[in-house]
Amino acid sequence: MENKIHFQYLIDGDDFTRAGEASSDIKSKLKMMNINPDAVRRVAIAMYEGEINMIIHADGGTIDVDVYPDKLTMVLKDTGPGIPDIDKAMEEGYSTAPDNIVSLGFGAGMGLPNMKRASDEMEISSVVGQGTTVTMTVLF
């Protein structure tokens, strides 16, 4: 487990216009590391949707990224309201996002399904009233 590089990002929950800065940063770092473009793209999509979710639902949080020679793991952690029914939240089209978010181009109930689709493994643990942690792995 020595062969890894760690990055941490603090996601500001107040500023929707800055959503995606962390994903943009990790994308350019991975490109510089010559990771295959398909994997870089999948990491970017998964993390970007995650960032958006943290801003819409949870007033921000932290993202910890570990880059290994053959894979990347990211842990997105927030102290938001939690997800009461994870199976429901995973359904395409199911959304609890407020209307103003829809006018910004998100909140169509595609976030979590997109994250699952883009990653090779995804685990969600959530406690209502305490927060949500999403762990995703992308194989290179």
């Binding site: 995606g20 943009s24 994308k27 910004l104 181009g105």
Partner: peptide, 15 residues
Amino acid sequence: GLSNPQTIRTAEMLD
């Protein structure tokens, strides 16, 4: 027709 910064962010993520 969506003209906020997330349009460009999305394009960036997808190359």
